[in-house]
Structure formats: C-alpha cells, structure tokens
C-alpha cells in the first residue's frame, strides 16, 4: 500500500506549496525538475532489491506530483479561452491513456516475465525523462508579473511557511497513524495514538492559522468570497480523488481475490474505467465547448461513481 500512498502523500503535501511558489518563480522549472524526480524514482524502483527500496523509489517519484496542479493551470494559460474545455478534456484523455497503457502493458509484463516490473519501471523512467526534456525545450512561457517584479527575498517572504509546516507534518503524521492502525499496531498503541493526536492537532492548527491569522496565504480567502464555486470545486475534487485512489488501490486486489488469477485479465477489467474516461473526457470537452457549462457532465459523472460503488457493495460471488 505504501507504494501508491507515497504518491498520494507527496501530492497532498507538495501540490499547494509548488502551486503557490510557481506564481512567483514561474511554472516551467517546477515542471521540468520535479518530473526528473519521477525518472530517478522509477529507476530506483526498477533496480529495487527490497520492498523498502521500492517504496523509497516511489517516494522520489512522488515529488513529480507536486507539479500536478500546474498541468491544468498551464493548459488554461497557454491556450485561448475558447479551446479551454478541449484543452482540459485532452489532459484527462491523456491521463486515461496513460492509465490504460500502464494497466494493460504493465499486467502483460508481469504475466510474461518474472521480473516484468523492472521492465515496466524502465519504461516509466523513459517516459518521465522524455516529458522533462520536451517541457524544458518546448515550454517557454512569458514570465509572470510577480516573477519579474519581486526580488527573491520578497518572493520567499510571501510564501506561507507556517502553513507549509502545519500541512506537511500534520498530514504525514495523521496518515502514518491511519496506515499503522491494526496493521501492524493496534488502535490503542502508542505508535498509532501519538502520531494520530499530534497530526490531528497540527491540522487543526493549520485551520486556525488560515482562518484567523493569514488571509492571503496557502488558502487565500479571496477565492472563497466571490461565490461558492471554488469551495464546491474543491469538494468535488476531493471526492474524485478519493474515488480514484480507492479504485486504483483496491479494485484490482478485489478482482484478483474474487474472480481472476490472470494479471492481464485483472488489468483488463479495471481498464474499462480508463476506456470510459477517455471517451467521457472527449465527450465532455465537446459538450462544454458547445454549451459553455460543465454542471450536467459533473452531476452525471458523480451519479456514475455512486452507481459503481453502490454496485460494488452488492457484488454477487
């Protein structure tokens, strides 16, 4: 579980920090350098001689996901407004294609070769290297106003260091406690209770700091004052991420226990979701371009999430 959890943790911790810093230093080098971490991490996983080493490799890969929010921002910034639905649809379709390739290619490699996972991670390392290289050559945006008008000292002063401390330490401790609970330590053990309480308190401190002590920091109050759309979007993204990582972590495992033993057929079952996501992304892009609204596709997609999880609950063996 720690293999994928490392990615989730680093996404949560680094995403807001990198996003804020990218407003001051520009998007390009965060994308390029953090993607290089993905290449290095994938090489470490491919050469792993222990599970600990594989997890360490995934932690290094996790740094790549600090730049994930920038992907959507860049697509919106470099293309005209009229193409934005298509641009965002293209990003989701590319994510779906990556998932599909990973599932089918990866499971075929696992099935064919005893050490197929090493080949898989070589391929991922190559993809990361190619992405970093193409971004460094092809993405040359005009500097942002704050990028050129502020000195490095001013930029550093504008970052919300207190919030970063609370967020990073709070999230990591809280998640470690939840992961260790009942496996391997009981809920009431020191190893679970101490990080759970300290992590929880740090997250409460983050909320207090952001509500009463800093209005333009990590959680900028202006984003919530205009209307309810931003808060709604955040909640929707939270549920979306929860659903994706739940399926990514447990669906294949569940199918492997209940229905299939062939890794490729397990991957094939899960891959239906990615076929759907590619078709859905493109369809929504066309719909949003024509109708100038995304409400109906969002409602429909969440109804389908509900249907999926509802039906998973009543599986007939």
């Amino acid at each position: 579980m720690w293999l994928s959890q490392a990615i989730v943790l680093l996404t949560v911790v680094l995403g807001p920090i990198v996003s804020q810093a990218a407003d001051f230093w520009g998007r390009k080098w965060f994308l390029v350098v953090l993607t290089c971490f993905g290449m290095v991490g994938s090489i470490v996983v491919s050469r792993a001689t222990s599970m600990g080493m594989a997890i360490a490799g995934e932690v290094i890969c996790g740094f790549t996901y600090g730049a994930q929010p920038l992907l959507y921002a860049v697509a919106s910034e470099i293309l005209p407004r009229q193409y934005r639905p298509a641009a965002q649809g293209g990003i989701n379709a590319a994510l779906g294609a990556g998932g599909l390739f990973g599932l089918l290619g990866g499971s075929a490699l696992m099935k064919t070769y005893d050490e197929g996972f090493r080949i898989y991670w070589y391929i991922v390392a190559g993809l990361m290297a190619l992405s970093s290289l193409t971004l460094s050559i092809l993405f040359n945006p005009v500097p942002r106003p704050l990028q050129i008008s502020l000195t490095t000292r001013e930029k550093l002063a504008r970052l919300d260091w207190v919030a970063y401390f609370f967020l990073t330490t709070g999230i990591v401790l809280f998640v470690i406690a939840l992961s260790w609970a009942e496996n391997p330590y009981p809920w009431r053990s020191v190893q679970v209770v101490v990080p759970l309480v300290i992590g929880g308190l740090l997250l409460v401190a983050l909320i207090i700091h952001q509500v009463w002590f800093r209005t333009d920091g990590l959680i900028h109050h202006g984003l919530f004052k205009m209307n309810r759309n931003f808060a709604l979007a955040l909640f929707i993204l939270f549920v979306d991420g929860l659903s994706f990582f739940a399926a990514n972590q447990y669906y294949s495992f569940e199918v492997g226990i209940l229905y299939e033993t062939d890794p490729f057929r397990i991957g094939l079952r899960y891959s239906i979701a990615f076929f759907g996501s590619i078709v859905g992304s493109l369809a929504v892009a066309v719909y949003a371009s024509i109708r100038k609204t995304v409400r109906f596709p969002i409602v429909l997609s969440f109804l389908m999430f509900t249907l999926f999880y509802g039906m998973s609950h009543i599986l007939i063996l």
């Binding site: 994928s4 994938s42 994510l95 998932g99 990973g102 990866g106 898989y120």
Partner: peptide, 12 residues
C-alpha cells in the same frame, strides 16, 4: 500520460 502510468504502476 507518464504520471498516470506511474500511479497505476504503483497501485493496481
């Protein structure tokens, strides 16, 4: 594409 390949590799 590369990011999702990595995520799926680490998970499913």
């Amino acid at each position: 594409f590369a990011q999702l390949t990595n995520i799926v590799g680490a998970g499913a």
